[in-house]
Design a protein around this nucleic acid. Sequence first.
RNA 1: GCCGAAGUGGCGGAAUUGGCAGACGCGGCGCACUCAAAAUGCGUUGGGGUAGCCCCCCAUGAGGGUUCGAGUCCCUCCUUCGGCACCA
Length: 816
Amino acid sequence: MREYQPAEIEPKWRQQWEKQKLYRAAEGGSRPKYYCLEMFPYPSGRLHMGHVRNYSLGDVVARFHRMRGYSVLHPIGWDAFGLPAENAALKRGIHPADWTWQNIGYMREQMKKLGLSYDWDRELATCDPEYYRWTQAIFLLFYERGLVYKAASRVNWCPGCHTVLANEQVEDGTCWRCHSPVEQRYLKQWFLKITEYAEPLLKDLERLQRWPERVRTMQANWIGRSEGAEIVFPIQGRSETLTVFTTRPDTLFGVTYMVVAPEHPLVDSLVKGPEAAAAVAALRQAQVPVTERERELAEKIGTPTGSYAINPANGRPIPIWVGNYVLMEYGTGAVMGVPAHDQRDFEFARKYHLPVEVVISPDGRPRDGEALSEAYVEAGQLVNSGPFDGLDNEEAKQKIVSWLEERGQGKARVQYRLRDWLISRQRYWGVPIPLVYCDRCGTIPVPREQLPVLLPREVDLQPGERSPLARVESFVHTTCPRCGGPASRETDTMDTFVDSSWYYLRYACSHDDRQALDPQRVNYWLPVDQYIGGVEHAILHLLYSRFFTKVLRDAGWLQFDEPFQSLFTQGMVTLGGSAMSKSKGNIVDPEDIIARYGADTARTFVLFAAPPDRDLEWSEAGVEGIYRFLQRVWRLVGEWTEADHSAAGAPSDRQLRRLLHRTIQRVTTDISERFNMNTAIAAIMELVNGLYAYRARPLVEQSASQIDESLRTLTVLLAPFAPFMAEELWQMLGGQGSVHEQSWPLVDPEALQEDQVTVVIQINGKVRDRIQVAAGLSREELQQTALASPKVQGVLDGRSPRQVVVVPNKIVNLVI
RNA sequence: GCCGAAGUGGCGGAAUUGGCAGACGCGGCGCACUCAAAAUGCGUUGGGGUAGCCCCCCAUGAGGGUUCGAGUCCCUCCUUCGGCACCA
């Protein structure tokens, strides 16, 4: 018999499938569509085990659905812009474009080796002008719809990457990519108004029932909706007012001071006298922290401005302070201080000897604020609150807000934690922002017919004061699209998360050169039925993509507003307990595994070793185990097809048939309902074990036709996991066409029927006996049989049970 | 601190609706094949008692509860991981 030689059969079938375009996705036809997508990779150089796991999972889903009769779209592409290309350029003197395209070439080859069933005709790369041209067009659409603006604000600056970062890209005060401590700078940058979609982005999470709870919670936390009120405080002796946002309007009568952020525009005019001015200057100097992390750890300090505001509720003057803990970016940059009912305010008040006034009490009786040891933040009744005394505090929130509204001193407001998305990057290898600055006409968008604004190839990538593109004269100098006069281009490029916010749409029409999206094809394939990727994108990519989809829907480009129906987040691949990484030196290269065991083993192992949502610890012994299993399948089929089995004329065996159909059932539900590829493979292993046991019988007791049928079904079940071997075995078994074009086997319910069942007999919940009985015995019959058991008789010792619980076909529990 | 997930043999993990805990694989042990080994096939493998194939006890992070019956449901606690964390 031929040996199992993956190195021979894998390249052979790969070529065959490519030639036949076996995995091309076709629109129309009678088959229902199914869009299976894995997050596209950054072309870093080579695939790592995380990729292998992600793409093997997706490939099983795609192949399974094809066999179940769906027309499947399963595309791949490259998230090809980004900083590593520039770093490689600096380090090795290779152009970012060349480096990127070389990597793509290598990784594409690796994917093909893995036997991933992509429709390669739809491949795309975000750094391709044919792609980013449309990224620019979508940017212009956002611009026209008023969703793009430039603003000066305090931004996150990564000194390692020499660029600004979006809020979402700061992790624990460090850069998400290089983990340098993020600094705060004050710069003018381009933003996308994602906050305008905060409400639908939050609300529609409810509809994403097939997303992991965890991811929905993370997004909801990130958006951070809070209901409250804006309250206007007059400033004593001046015409300006100070507006605060609060979630506790019910505590308005307990406000004893105000605090504004150090950067608040009114601070300078509020400061009274040289002493206060010096104190405020000192506070700003000492306490505007450089990094985000320092800012979080900083002690709460403040200093009075010398000015007073008027509490609109009771007309009392209250001091206005400047405090380092008030954020200019959230709410209005000013807060009201209610020390009796907010722990932070309480600590601040105690530190600076500010009065504490109780306005909410659990029993409705007034208390002495000075006697409190901590803030009272629970519910209660209002006290010392004029006309609102005695009200329940939740009710008082509404009443006080309406009261303020009537008097023009405030209004109800919803505040979000979510900030607008900063998309400017001071880097070269990204999509140029298609805007020009004209002295006469101002900021002008590049007309669509002039797109793409191409990245110049010749560029100096050395980090410097100005970004690389700003130093390319021929790029910067241009003419104004409106007046034709001299103008200069925007030299920032876009955050690469912009590129990846719409790529899943483009797959529907990857090479359409007339439009970004062909409405007919996009609305046919989308939304994505199953999206698979790492949980590290729970906020960033998935939130941005949802935002883009909603905007494009509002613009009439799409007929749906959520891009991903079902999301699956896979676990990490670890070695020695931690994620594989170059810096830790704990890498297993998929290339080595394929070379040694073949792609089928690599795929099947990563799917078998752990449930897909959990972390997977790499195990060389486990890989060997899978390799042995595949060889075991190979021998089973090989020995059968080569042996003379004309004597195997026994009738079909009911037990083997039941095993076969139970396996079909388990594999089917494990893939489609539970996503548990590990148990699907375990079920196939059990079938193989059963077939070996059957084959150990004398030949005359075997049924040739049943073995033949079983082996064919086994091969089909194995096809999504080990596509190369399955194809080879299918051919050995004399199957017609490709195994990957076969229909998924159906379960015969009749075959599943058991005629004998094991019923467990328990006494007081402990197993005392097991009996074999005919399936479907009635409760009474079961009870009689159980009582007749000699072991039961022994334990009962003449007593009769107080109670008998019977679950037909399963259990009899006697209670004594 | 707040929110969420997880904790099962020597190891990775099964147990789908509350009904035989440990499927499947790894590792270990044994047998067959072999001159021998490897490979392969078959058997065995939670702990303890007793002793060798029959029986008993214990066992799903800890403790309590609900139930005829709990890995699964409820409460308290411990540990690990993830998210959020001056958000007014």
